[in-house]
Amino acid sequence: MKRFVLLDTAPIPNDGGALCLFEYGEDFVIKLQSGKGGQLMNTRMHGSEDALASIPCKRIASRPKTRVLIGGLGMGFTLASALEHLQPDASVSVAELVPGVIEWNRGALGARAGHPLQDSRAHIINDDVAAVLKSETSVFDAIMLDIDNGPEGLTHQNNTWLYSLSGLGACATALRPGGVLAVWSASMDQKFPARMAQAGFSTEQVQVYAHGNRGAKHTIWIGTRKAAAKRG
Rank of each mutant, 00 (worst) to 15 (best):
D119N: 15
P64V: 09
T43D: 08
L19E: 10
G150S: 01
D189L: 00
A194E: 14
H211G: 10
D89Y: 01
A170S: 10
A95M: 09
D146Y: 04
W221G: 02
I102F: 14
M188F: 11
N159S: 09
Y163L: 09
P177T: 04
S81R: 05
C20D: 04
S138I: 01
R44M: 09
E49Q: 15
S48P: 09
P177C: 07
G178F: 08
Q157C: 05
V29M: 01
Q198V: 02
Y163K: 08
A61E: 06
A82S: 09
A95L: 08
N159P: 03
A131I: 00
A194I: 06
M196P: 03
N126Q: 15
G35D: 10
V180D: 01
N126S: 15
A53T: 02
Q205M: 15
A53W: 02
P64A: 14
K226H: 11
N105A: 11
V68H: 00
G74N: 11
A172S: 07
Q198Y: 04
S135P: 07
D119R: 12
S166W: 00
G179K: 01
N159G: 06
P193S: 11
G100H: 00
G16E: 08
P64K: 14
V180L: 04
N159C: 06
A53K: 03
S34G: 11
A228Y: 13
T203S: 07
D146L: 08
S91Y: 04
I70K: 05
Y209N: 10
M41S: 11
G110W: 10
S164G: 12
W161K: 06
K217E: 12
M196T: 03
A228W: 13
A186F: 07
S187E: 04
